[in-house]
Design a protein around this nucleic acid. Sequence first.
RNA 1: GUCCCCAUCGUCUAGCCCGGUCAGGACACUACCCUUUCACGGUAAGAACCGGGGUUCGAAUCCCCGUGGGGACGCCA
Length: 438
Amino acid sequence: MSQVRVRFAPSPTGFFHIGSARTALFNWLYARHTQGVFILRIEDTDKERNSDEFLRVIYDSLKWLGLDWDEGPGVGGGAGPYRQSERSSIYQEYLAQLRKTGRTYEKDGATYFRISGESQIIEDAIRGRVERTEEKDFVIVRSDGNPVFHLVNVVDDIAMRVTHVIRGEDHLSNTSKHTELFRAFGAPLPVFAHIPLILKQNGPGKMSKRDQGALIEEYQRRGFLPEALVNFLCLLGWSPKNDAEKMPLPEIVKLFDLPGVNQSNARFDEKKLAHMNMAYLHAMPVDHYVPLATSYLKRTGAFSGGDPDSAYLREVLALCQVKVRSLEELPPAIQYFFREDFATDVKAKEKIFGKGDPKARVRELLATLAQADFSSDATLEAWLHGVASRHGAQTADYIHPGRLAVSGVSAGPSFYGIFRVLGRERVQRRLERFLSLD
RNA sequence: GUCCCCAUCGUCUAGCCCGGUCAGGACACUACCCUUUCACGGUAAGAACCGGGGUUCGAAUCCCCGUGGGGACGCCA
């Protein structure tokens, strides 16, 4: 059994979107599963619509997702070059072969391929037997001399010895053109595997680059975890059949196979992605999470007033890790740790002032704050219990006003955790300020 | 319009190939528990086999026809 060779062949004519990423992922998974070769090939035959910026987006997105290629731009390989714009001489050789066998003709300056008109049958690894007959001759070289997609795609698959063509179902109808060409070249057919499409989450049709949430770079910018996105994406059109969902990548590689891919299209669900992202965020070791969160905060300008003390920042981030569902929630969730002029939430204030005498409770906290042991949540809890029992009150009578006083909000980490991380001086200043609130 | 693909909870899916289980899990939604906050977590509830024929003792599962959804019909890829 010869080695599996698959390729991902994006065209740098648009942004890199969810559907492309999933196609790349399925190819990559299959290559890794079979210990085969994952080739990156750039289909840049349409000179009008290409741009280097789009090319860079493809490289960046693939790298960010962790989809490393074994052959392709930047890494080389024996079947290069891997940009179609650099492969003209190869196309000319193959074209000469077609001309020699009488399979081409010129019309209006373009080169047409003469089809056989025979029924084209493929055994799709996902859909089974699919039969279609190509009806018309089609253009393989434009009148400007540039070869078109159908030709170069097939030539490259032959020249690069691609064994499995894993691509979106939108190519299924094109396949009869491609098999006509494979046969005209006398080349064996690769195994085709047409994967289901990703449908936009609202409204009809497949997801396109203009749809909300379609662009990979957007998830990157917003601080999504690539491992979560990869895990989510692999579940769109495939499942491990054992009810597992959050799986480490090696496990996915082990279980992934073509016959397990579904035949029906899948609708994109951002809520499930968000849930997956949260699961990964919460499961992340603190030592991994802190630098990640820090770079996200720096990138989004959260520290415009200067970088905070790194040990303090670490404490804050560790305290809030399980309180946020995504990195995007981080800036508002931690802002009060880094500024004294934080706002007091009106609703929270109304709620707390509507019951009991919060200022009196805060005065009682201040009275013994100097004796409080800030070294751990447990010692602070012991201190608070002491305060409460001395005044015949509940700890909750202090916790809620206390949290509001030091954070301005009624939700967040534990009272003890906030106090511990803020430290005695900050807490004292904020409690005192609270007493002068209108 | 022609051709191709598909069809299980609102969504992602298991089950289908090899007919017989209260049709299972997850997201979302709801309730409760936990937490004297908010999340997380836990428990529970509701929620689906597109319709019609056939084959069969028996059909989500096999076959046919509808219907619905998706895709392709470019000198785009």
